[in-house]
């Protein structure tokens, strides 16, 4: 049971890392588009980044909950 919990936490952390990489790419792409004069890309970039952040928070809370049970 302990090992399954740890696997769940590790999975959540791995997914969090992947989402973070996507968010980093999104930030650089939005900045690049803005500097190129495509200001219309800023809004969808911010919305998508907010959604990714929300997903990260959800995964973080999940990991925290599993941690709490583990403790």
């Amino acid at each position: 049971m302990k090992s399954r919990r740890r696997d769940a936490i590790d999975g959540a952390l791995a997914l969090l890392s992947v989402l973070l990489v996507v968010q980093m790419w999104l930030l650089t792409a939005a900045l690049e588009a803005d500097l190129a004069g495509h200001h219309e890309a800023a809004l969808p970039g911010a919305v998508l980044s907010g959604l990714l952040f929300a997903a990260c928070v959800a995964l973080g809370l999940l990991a925290e909950r599993v941690h709490a049970r583990h403790d």
Partner: peptide, 21 residues
């Protein structure tokens, strides 16, 4: 996980900054 969340928040704030700009 807290470090990752903080970084994710930083990325989000960066995107918001681009939007405001």
């Amino acid at each position: 996980s807290r470090f990752l969340l903080l970084t994710s928040l930083g990325m989000f704030v960066g995107n918001l900054w681009i939007l405001v700009r």
